[in-house]
Amino acid sequence: MRGTAAMKVETLTVRYGKKVALDRVGLEVPLGSVYALLGRNGSGKSSLVRVLLGQQAPCEGHAELLGEPSWGARTRLMARVGVVPEDPDAPPAMTVRALEAFCRPLYPSWDGTSLAARLDRFGIPADAPFGGLSKGQKGLSLLALALAPSPELLVLDDPTLGLDPVARKAFYEEVIGELADRRTTVFLTTHDLAGIEPIADRVGILKEGRLLVDEPLESLKARFRRIRYANEITEERTEFGNELDAFDAVQVKVRGWGSEAVVSNYDDARFETFRTTDGVVDAEASPLSLEDLFLAVAGEGARTKGGSR
């Protein structure tokens, strides 16, 4: 393996006719990290995953997995990568046992014991046809199959979509367990922001094919704040509108009691200066959850490009 990146894409562009699905996207996922790629439906997440997994050729740019080109070395790479797709795509007529029998000879390091243990833990009947399993069971059995070859990289494409809370909890526990045991690199796309917030090291936010955010979750949360304040006309200040310039606001809403903004360039000293600005009263700053942050950056009211550093 070359370098320290489990995944790397540069100036990746994917088009479908005139529609641009990915627009010169570049990102890097360090080895051993958990990277959460967020984005609304149609933002280009699945296209990025397909390109990363060597299932689709990009129009421009290139993608690497574990130091090798994902298109050219796909066959070799897939022996080291576990994949759980957005839609459970295993042949519906095959039982989980048949799926295992199909996969086992393909991987040099297949761990049938751990697979059996996981299926047992999930309560999935090995002889039931895959198509007859519940949505949660399908997701969990695909996760079990993906983990069986002890992959160096786990790619999860919105894996908890449609899962009930119990299945979702079991899913994340298994992922977290794998991380704790083997420090497997995880790349996942998801809408389940609450679920991944405790485990994600780094976050990317895609909007309309462009990567607005790509940084560690901690620094992201540190620089984003919700600021609430009221305006008061004084002798020296009769007009408002530029008082948030220093914060690089991504969302501003005017309420009856004053203004509410989500800013992407927060720090305490700057806020202290803002709080004492003439005409600004009752200013307070509060941290954002990942969901709030996502909504502020990728939601309808977002007005900036995410202010990535």
Binding site: Q55, R74, A79, V83, D89, P91, L106, Y107
Partner: peptide, 14 residues
Amino acid sequence: EKRLAWYFSRPIAP
């Protein structure tokens, strides 16, 4: 129906 990814997610040469 986008079911070929099942095969392409495995170490199976085209």
